[in-house]
């Protein structure tokens, strides 16, 4: 449960400095740095929405980071915020009706956006993997993502990215990623057993490595990363590592959205 690490991941991916982002949402760089390092609590919903606007992301993606709505069924912080706003204004049935109308008009029910599960195939979920060093796990992911040559280049790119900004987002999840190497977003999930010790924001050892490639640039890439970061939920990661089959893992993932 480390919002700061996820925010830093998205900020660095967006290529923004602490100062630029701070200026854009009207807070100091020092405050943002404290949040990213977990010395200050997660930003308020307002600020998260502002950050989401800067990144060009739907605010719900960032609000979810704090609530970690990854566990199926649990209401996200975003939806709870909406309820709180309704309650605080003491809206009556008529006003709530208008809100619902607005929602129906503005967000027609379409097919759900593809989740992280859609980026995975059973052969790219590796269960019960044991490594001595975290780099080896990233290498294995690279190997599965680009099986026919080119995996060295991908592995190097992933390592280079990790070296600049470690992508551990807490709860034992590592998110190595690259813009290219695939025509469209593609992922590989490596589940480590036993977990692998590494420097992580919440000191939890790495249990899952979700490598995503073909992210492209800009908002779509950030959106995939934000969705991937939502998986950093201790309960979900525990479900993954307890799974005995790939289909069990895929099931948990689909539930997490």
């Amino acid at each position: 449960m480390h919002v700061g690490a996820s925010l830093r991941l998205l900020r660095t991916e967006a290529g923004l400095s602490l100062k630029t982002l701070g200026q854009a949402i009207g807070v100091s760089a020092a405050y943002l740095s404290r949040v990213e390092n977990g010395h200050d609590p997660a930003p308020t919903a307002d600020r998260l929405c502002a950050i989401a606007r800067v990144f060009g992301l739907p605010s719900e993606l960032l609000l979810d980071l704090t609530g970690r709505a990854a566990v199926p069924g649990a209401p996200s912080l975003a939806s709870r915020t909406l309820l709180q706003e309704v309650a605080r204004r003491r809206l009556g049935p008529a006003q709530i009706g208008r809100v619902l109308d607005f929602i129906a008009r503005e967000f027609p029910e379409g097919p759900a956006a593809p989740g992280i599960a859609g980026l995975l195939t059973p052969d790219r979920v590796m269960l019960g993997v044991r490594v001595g060093r975290l780099e080896d796990a990233v290498d294995l992911a690279a190997m599965r993502l680009v099986p026919d040559g080119g995996s060295e280049a991908l592995a190097q790119a992933l390592h280079a990215r990790e070296y600049v900004f470690p992508s551990a987002v807490g709860a034992g999840l590592l998110l190595p990623h690259a813009a290219g190497f695939a025509p469209s977003p593609t992922a590989c999930l490596v589940l480590l057993d036993p977990p692998c010790d590494a420097a992580t924001p919440d000191d939890a050892p790495i249990r899952a490595v979700l490598a995503v490639i073909g992210l492209g640039e800009g908002a779509p890439a950030l959106s995939w990363l934000a969705r991937a970061a939502r998986l950093a939920d201790p309960e979900l990661i525990a479900q993954f590592t307890a799974a005995r089959s790939v289909s069990e893992v895929m099931g948990s993932l689909a539930g997490a959205g």
Binding site: D123, G128, V129, R130, V131, G132, D136
Partner: peptide, 16 residues
Amino acid sequence: DPLSFPSATPGDDIVR
């Protein structure tokens, strides 16, 4: 360094 993972094509994976 131990390295262990499931593989359907062990020969190819060792080469990789």
